[in-house]
Simulated scan of single mutants.
Amino acid sequence: MTSSDAEFSAAVRRTFRLAERIAPAMGDGVVPVWCDNRDGGRTLVGTAFFVERERRSFLVTALHNFTNNAGAILKIEFSGMVWTLSEMSGRTSPADDLWVAEADADLQQRLRAINVPLLKRDEPESCQFGTGTVLMGYPEDLSLPGAPFRPLAISTTLDVRDGLATTSTLPEPIIYNVADDFLSTAEGLTVMHRPDIFGMSGGPAFSWFCTAVPSSNKAAFNFFLQGMIVSWQRRKGYVVACNAARIAALITAP
């Protein structure tokens, strides 16, 4: 291996180590959505996460977490407190399968203790790129009766397969490839089979990329909120996400 090859390999390793830090850095703001069950426990419904827009905090999840569980009282727990989603001032966009609600003063105060992603990108095209992606949520497969819900973060890429036919009707959807048998978790653990991610609906997707630092041979690592997980097409091996710009549009709508 030449010195240039060694330097390149070292740079790649450093970059992936940085990508592995996204989940730990953002994980506190990703929470399970659940409802009470007859046994006095909790039944996992999906995933939700917090975002910040112009110094205001919002909770985001998939609308179908409500419509698929009609009559259920959906809740989240954060910072030792339980919030009932129906009691929050929620806005919906059925076309985007999207539900958002602004955090109240108490929740807003508690969120100051954690990292919350900034929702900055208003143009859908500005969310459609990245070298890699980290999908986060609470899959049903890891949910054991009577045990705390367990999160999962999956490192993958945008799906660029030619002629990929999707069933998505979302405006400006983002598609991720989860067909690879050699995916890894965001903590670097190899996944030797396609992960079953039902339960991660409503979770965040973060895109990462590197940019050159002027007057330097170094690169800067960047990541941003790219979208919200909406559906998992198991047989075709892809995940569909609502574009983060569509989340911003619903938040800022009059």
Rank of each mutant, 00 (worst) to 15 (best):
residue 149 F to V: 05
residue 28 D to C: 15
residue 86 S to H: 11
residue 204 P to D: 02
residue 254 P to N: 13
residue 2 T to K: 06
residue 24 P to E: 06
residue 71 G to Q: 12
residue 109 Q to Y: 14
residue 67 T to K: 10
residue 172 E to A: 11
residue 61 T to M: 12
residue 214 P to W: 01
residue 79 S to Q: 13
residue 71 G to V: 07
residue 140 E to V: 09
residue 128 Q to D: 11
residue 154 I to D: 14
residue 73 I to V: 05
residue 104 D to E: 02
residue 94 P to E: 03
residue 45 V to H: 10
residue 216 S to I: 03
residue 170 L to S: 01
residue 145 P to D: 11
residue 96 D to Y: 02
residue 131 T to L: 03
residue 74 L to K: 09
residue 28 D to K: 03
residue 12 V to K: 15
residue 150 R to K: 09
residue 189 L to C: 06
residue 179 A to V: 11
residue 32 P to T: 05
residue 66 F to Y: 13
residue 199 G to F: 12
residue 4 S to P: 09
residue 127 C to G: 12
residue 108 Q to L: 02
residue 110 R to V: 08
residue 212 A to V: 07
residue 178 V to Q: 02
residue 244 A to T: 12
residue 47 T to V: 05
residue 177 N to A: 06
residue 25 A to V: 13
residue 166 T to M: 00
residue 159 D to R: 00
residue 119 L to R: 01
residue 6 A to K: 02
residue 85 L to R: 04
residue 188 G to V: 02
residue 227 G to N: 03
residue 51 V to H: 01
residue 199 G to P: 15
residue 135 L to F: 05
residue 199 G to Q: 10
residue 43 T to Q: 04
residue 81 M to L: 05
residue 45 V to K: 10
residue 198 F to V: 08
residue 233 Q to E: 09
residue 148 P to A: 03
residue 189 L to G: 14
residue 216 S to G: 00
residue 63 L to A: 05
residue 148 P to T: 07
residue 36 D to A: 07
residue 189 L to E: 11
residue 219 A to P: 13
residue 104 D to W: 05
residue 135 L to Y: 06
residue 130 G to I: 00
residue 25 A to I: 04
residue 167 T to P: 01
residue 102 E to S: 13
residue 69 N to Q: 13
residue 144 L to P: 02
residue 233 Q to L: 04
residue 160 V to K: 00
residue 134 V to F: 07
residue 148 P to Y: 07
residue 6 A to V: 05
residue 199 G to I: 08
residue 253 A to M: 06
residue 71 G to E: 05
residue 234 R to N: 11
residue 185 T to H: 12
residue 135 L to M: 07
residue 117 P to A: 08
residue 231 S to P: 15
residue 79 S to K: 10
residue 125 E to L: 05
residue 217 N to S: 02
residue 214 P to Y: 03
residue 175 I to H: 01
residue 234 R to G: 08
residue 254 P to A: 06
residue 234 R to K: 11
residue 186 A to K: 12
residue 161 R to V: 00
residue 107 L to V: 04
residue 107 L to G: 10
residue 38 R to L: 12
residue 74 L to W: 08
residue 174 I to H: 00
residue 25 A to D: 04
residue 194 R to W: 04
residue 231 S to G: 13
residue 88 M to N: 07
residue 153 A to L: 14
residue 172 E to C: 14
residue 242 C to Q: 10
residue 37 N to T: 04
residue 136 M to K: 13
residue 35 C to S: 14
residue 56 R to E: 12
residue 142 L to G: 10
residue 70 A to T: 08
